[in-house]
Computed example of a mutant assay.
Amino acid sequence: MKLIGSLTSPYVRKVRIVLAEKKLDYELILDDPWGPGARAAEHNPLGKVPCLIMDESGALFDSRVIVEYLDTLSPVGRLIPPPGRERIEVKRWEAVADGVMDAAAAAFLETHRRPESQRNPDWIARQHQKVHAGLDYMEQLLGEQSYCMGVNLCLADIAVGAALGYLDLRFPGLDWRAGHPHLARLAEKLDTRPSFTTTRPPAA
């Protein structure tokens, strides 16, 4: 398998963490979806990363689709429960964490990719509101639990960890830990895992 992606994308990192936890071999092909000649556009009509190229079945895109597929490839460390209430809970966690990443990425791109005269402060503020609302929601949902779903690592934790790591990368002055001690505790625990340390994005 080949994974097309960038080192700073939180969605790519989520997939890479899953690959590491599942002990699956792959080749990482670095790509800048915003640059000329982007590789992702050759396999994903939306031109986004991550994009997983499979040996026989073409390509998969969207991190949620990719991680669902990867979890079926090996019985090692199941990250997504079988169909039922618990699976829905894990996917809910993933949806909120991905939503935080969506809003954070949108705010970053509006601030750093668009000329200052064309930026919309109200729209940027709206994205930051989404980030804070998502953090508050996850903080309350996590509570005193060791992991998002109780005592074992699952996809929910990986998605949350990727989102929190992206906030540290792009918004170092946010200090989200101050008002979210449960999430801070989870992030500290996740950051000791090899799957997280080896996929940590380079400093901005």
Score class of each variant (00 low, 15 high):
R87E: 12
V15I: 06
D31L: 05
E188N: 15
E21I: 01
V96K: 01
P172E: 11
L164D: 03
D175Y: 04
L155F: 11
G143K: 08
V100M: 09
P115R: 07
H43Y: 14
I80M: 12
I158N: 00
H182N: 15
L28S: 02
A20L: 08
Q140D: 01
R200D: 07
T197R: 11
G173H: 12
F61C: 04
L79S: 01
A184C: 09
D136I: 04
C148N: 04
L28Y: 06
S57T: 14
G161F: 03
Y147E: 02
E42Y: 05
E56K: 14
D136A: 15
A162E: 03
V65A: 09
M54Y: 07
P36E: 09
G143N: 03
L79H: 00
P36N: 10
A187P: 03
H43E: 13
K189W: 09
R87S: 13
Q129N: 14
S195F: 05
A105G: 14
P75K: 08
V131K: 01
M1K: 01
L167E: 06
L73W: 03
L70A: 00
P81K: 10
A203C: 13
E116F: 04
D32Y: 03
S117R: 15
A40R: 05
E42V: 15
N120L: 06
N44A: 08
L153C: 04
G77L: 08
Y147C: 07
P202Y: 09
D122K: 12
K23G: 15
N44G: 09
V131G: 00
E86F: 05
